[in-house]
Computed example of a mutant assay.
Amino acid sequence: MRLPREKPKRELINITPLIDVVFILLVFFMLAGSIEPEDAFAVTPTASSSDLRGDVQDLVILVGEEGEIAINDRSVPRDALEGEVRDILTGNPEVLIQLKPDSRAEAKDVIAIMEEIRNGGASYIVLLTVGAGQVAG
């Protein structure tokens, strides 16, 4: 007597745990990623061949094409810059000051602003530029 052979059952692979892990990773990277704050006005940084980069954004001072100044996201009059820097450094002496001038700004204006920042008590200023060969966007 011949018994009929049972057909092997196909086991279905449950991918629900895989999808859960992918979504958890997605949420983690969305929350852990950094979102760059918008500048107070548009600035096109100068190109540089230096390898140093200021990745920490404690304090960013923007210098516009016409010499306008903004600290982080608020505009500051030129004559108040030294006092503003002094106040910030009094509250947090370890703050990293980053200067981001527009590539069309006059060099003498940028140097004068750097002197005002130094007069405000800054001992170290990072000049933010775009690497040579990169396009500012």
Rank of each mutant, 00 (worst) to 15 (best):
E6K: 13
E6C: 10
E6W: 09
E6V: 03
K7I: 09
K7P: 12
K7W: 13
P8Y: 03
P8E: 12
K9F: 14
K9I: 08
R10N: 09
R10Y: 06
R10I: 07
R10C: 14
R10H: 15
E11T: 06
E11L: 00
E11W: 13
L12S: 05
L12V: 15
L12Y: 13
L12C: 10
I13H: 09
I13D: 01
I13C: 04
I15Y: 14
I15C: 01
T16K: 05
T16I: 12
T16G: 01
T16S: 03
T16A: 03
T16Q: 07
P17G: 03
P17F: 03
P17Y: 06
P17K: 00
L18F: 11
L18R: 12
L18M: 13
L18N: 08
L18Y: 13
L18H: 09
I19V: 13
I19Q: 12
I19P: 06
I19N: 09
V21G: 07
V22M: 05
V22Q: 01
F23N: 02
F23H: 09
F23Q: 05
F23D: 00
I24C: 11
L25C: 04
L25R: 03
L25H: 08
L25T: 00
L26Y: 08
L26F: 07
L26P: 00
L26W: 03
V27C: 06
V27Q: 06
V27E: 01
V27K: 11
F28W: 11
F28R: 01
F29E: 02
F29L: 01
F29M: 00
F29T: 07
F29P: 02
M30C: 05
M30L: 10
M30E: 11
M30P: 02
L31F: 11
L31G: 08
A32P: 05
A32T: 06
A32W: 14
A32N: 02
A32V: 07
A32D: 09
G33P: 05
G33M: 02
G33E: 01
G33A: 09
S34R: 13
S34V: 11
S34C: 09
I35M: 12
E36T: 04
E36N: 14
P37Y: 09
P37S: 04
P37Q: 10
P37K: 11
E38S: 04
E38A: 08
E38V: 02
E38H: 05
D39E: 13
D39T: 12
D39N: 12
A40N: 10
A40M: 14
A40C: 15
A42P: 14
A42T: 15
A42L: 08
A42S: 15
V43C: 00
T44G: 02
P45Y: 00
P45W: 00
T46H: 04
A47K: 02
A47W: 08
A47E: 04
A47Q: 09
S48W: 03
S48Q: 04
S48P: 05
S49P: 15
S49E: 14
S49I: 07
S49L: 10
S50K: 01
S50A: 14
S50G: 02
D51C: 08
D51L: 14
D51P: 12
D51W: 11
L52D: 02
R53W: 14
R53M: 09
G54H: 15
G54T: 07
G54Y: 13
G54W: 10
G54P: 08
